[in-house]
Design a binder for these strands. Sequence first.
RNA 1: GGCCCUAUCGUCUAACGGUUAGGACAUCGCCUUUUCAAGGCGGUAAUCAGAGUUCGAUUCUCUGUAGGGUCACCA
Length: 487
Amino acid sequence: MNKVVTRFAPSPTGFMHVGGIRTALYAYLWAKKNKGSFILRIEDTDKEREIEGSIEHIIKSLKWLGINWDEGPDIGGSHAPYIQSKRLNLYKKYAEILIEKGFAYPDPYTEEEVGIFRDKAELARKPFLYRENRPASTNSSLGGSEKFNVWDACPSSGGVTKPLRFKVPEIKSYKWNDLVYGGLSAGPEALDDFILIKSDGYPTYNFAHIIDDIEMGVTHVMRGQEFISSTPKFLSVYEALNIKPPLFATLPPIMATDGKKKLSKRDGAKDILEYKNEGYLPSALVNFLALLGWNPGDDREIFTEDELIKAFDISRIGHSGAQINMEKLDWINKEHIKKLPKEELKNKIFEYLPENLKIEKLIPIIAERISKFGDIKEMINNGELDFFYKQPEYSKDKLIFKNISADKISSNLKEILSALEKINENDFTVENIKNILMKIAEKKGSRGELLHPVRFALSGLDKSPDPFVIAEILGKNETLSRIQKAI
RNA sequence: GGCCCUAUCGUCUAACGGUUAGGACAUCGCCUUUUCAAGGCGGUAAUCAGAGUUCGAUUCUCUGUAGGGUCACCA
């Protein structure tokens, strides 16, 4: 069996969103599972739409998620370079082979003239097919024996020339096998004389990716289902070249959160690095995206990257579009936070905490109250943590538990005060505090009668951690002074 | 419009043609509890519609409907 080679081939036209990342992830997982290699290739053949800095941004995004490539623009490899604009001679070489075989010819029409053909087709409510307007000269020959050698592409000198078109060898229906969808097919209208090399000398995606996949030995091509309808075009190029195509694995689309549309930047798809800024763990996002369109066949939901590599299988990729669900992502992230090693959890949380709140004992309290680290900012903004470093202010009646009288509350607090005073400062721990307070609380009509005022005296908040934990963190002095104040 | 893909709880999904249609998130209720969080237990909730094949269709076939994709010198 040949070594599995997969690739992710984004174009540098901006940031990455979950759609692209999920495609990259599946290709990565499949390569790793099969001990094969995963290639990162940059498809920058559209200089108009290229956005400065995108390549770095893409690399940063993938690296953050731990989706690492074995060959790529930054690290090289045996098929370097991995940037299409640096491989133009290669595409030219293959273009000349096609010309030689009679499967490519220069397009004599201007863009405007082709536009007129297109308008005519639209008016007739027919799909636009260039080949129906194929220049007579190219039709003169049967099969692939004719040679069109008048193409004058000279990409290296930047000269503009006529675009080179593919001449479809045979107009027919195609049926092929897809690793995910099984049997796929398309009618002859999916076949056309598409452009191989543009007038600026750069190849089109339709051509360049095929050449690169061949040259780089790619065995499994994974991509979104928007490519199903152009697959016959690709197959016909492989046929013209007399090269066996790789295996195709088509991925179902990811839909936008709200509507039913395919996720796209204009529908609010966000930069993957925004998830980083919001404090999601890369392992959680990877876990979430893996499950969006794939499942392990059992009830497991939480995976590490290694577990994903083991469990991943193309045959368990689904066929229908999936909406992204932020609530589920939050839950998965929370589960990953729970599994974080202590030291790492501490570092992550402290990253979001001001100096005066970097208290070790605060970590579990915060950890179980957030689903992503960015939530800590919100806790701070809402003043949920203020009481740990400053005397809370509150109105007196908030100390009252249900309909217990103020005098009763006051005397309860006094009782607690004297009990806590007896604890040695070094023994002022959750366990000891809890023991003593609970002993007293049990004697009251309800524990809340005693515990609520204490908690409130310490936190000044309707919602807070329990009083024992707060007391320990505040320390004996501060705890006593706050209770004293409440009295 | 042509061609193509898809259709199970609100969402992500599971189910050799035979299951009380399973799980997870969300939601609701209860327990735990001084409040919150966390945790435990439980509930509500789905096979798009109509034909056909079959002893038996979520599952196979057809039609319809709905959603999506595609028809560029974009990828």
